[in-house]
Design a protein around this nucleic acid. Structure first.
Lengths: 109, 109
DNA sequence: CATGTTGTTCGCAAAATTACGAATAATAAT
DNA sequence: ATTATTATTCGTAATTTTGCGAACAACATG
């Protein structure tokens, strides 16, 4: 445990960042709503997701900061939607991780 | 924002739990090691991943608590490996989320 | 211009996460 | 029995996350 000079790869950092953004029920609920396209507006989400508006804003910001969603001002409201580019990036990274482990021939007993 | 009686679905909670477990570079590094089957032992990981042993233990515990890995005592060390059953469950849940959003015809401008 | 609507930011508090070294436990080796 | 090896748990501290209501900003409406 002496060779500690090496940190994590950019891929590992990015992967963890995406996963962390997905790591809360409110944020999964937001993405579920966006997936069902039932709505894309803050106000609509606020009626369905059981948290205060300010808390919802924070979770939306975190998804935005992670790059997974984006917001467009559509007065008088704000329309949120998936950031396709980064979402695809996340999808491929998760897929790769799952594939790598799936293809792992090592089996524990 | 009055209909707050409904919490999150079990699926959403489970999804968030898996994602949260993946939400740290150390834990991604652990899984990368398990994927490469380069090693499965705490001591080996400790030489590659730049954190104190006790910290590594904590991260291993979190992956264990989330059900993603399991440890088998193989004296004098401990052999860690993927929990296939739960890993497959996680994979299918992530795949589903990505598929749902991929198939979403709603496009923002 | 006063009011209402929509959503963010601020201020704060509670809880969880992250990290480390020291202490501990369990087992093997001398 | 003492010592060495391996990994976890304990104790502690710093940081981050989560959550809420109040205050605020931006714009539309009466």
């Amino acid at each position: 445990m002496n060779n500690k000079e090496k940190a994590f790869t950019a891929e590992q950092e990015q992967m963890a960042r995406f996963a962390k953004a997905l790591g809360h029920p409110v944020r999964i609920a937001i993405l579920d709503l966006l997936a069902s396209q039932a709505c894309c507006y803050h106000g609509d989400m606020s009626e369905v997701i059981p948290v205060a508006k300010s808390t919802l804003s924070q979770h939306l910001s975190e998804l935005k900061d992670a790059g997974l969603i984006q917001g467009t001002l559509t007065l008088p409201s704000i329309k949120y939607c998936i950031n396709r580019e980064n979402w695809n990036k996340a999808r491929s990274m998760f897929t790769e991780l799952f594939r790598d482990i799936e293809g792992n021939s090592y089996v524990c007993r």
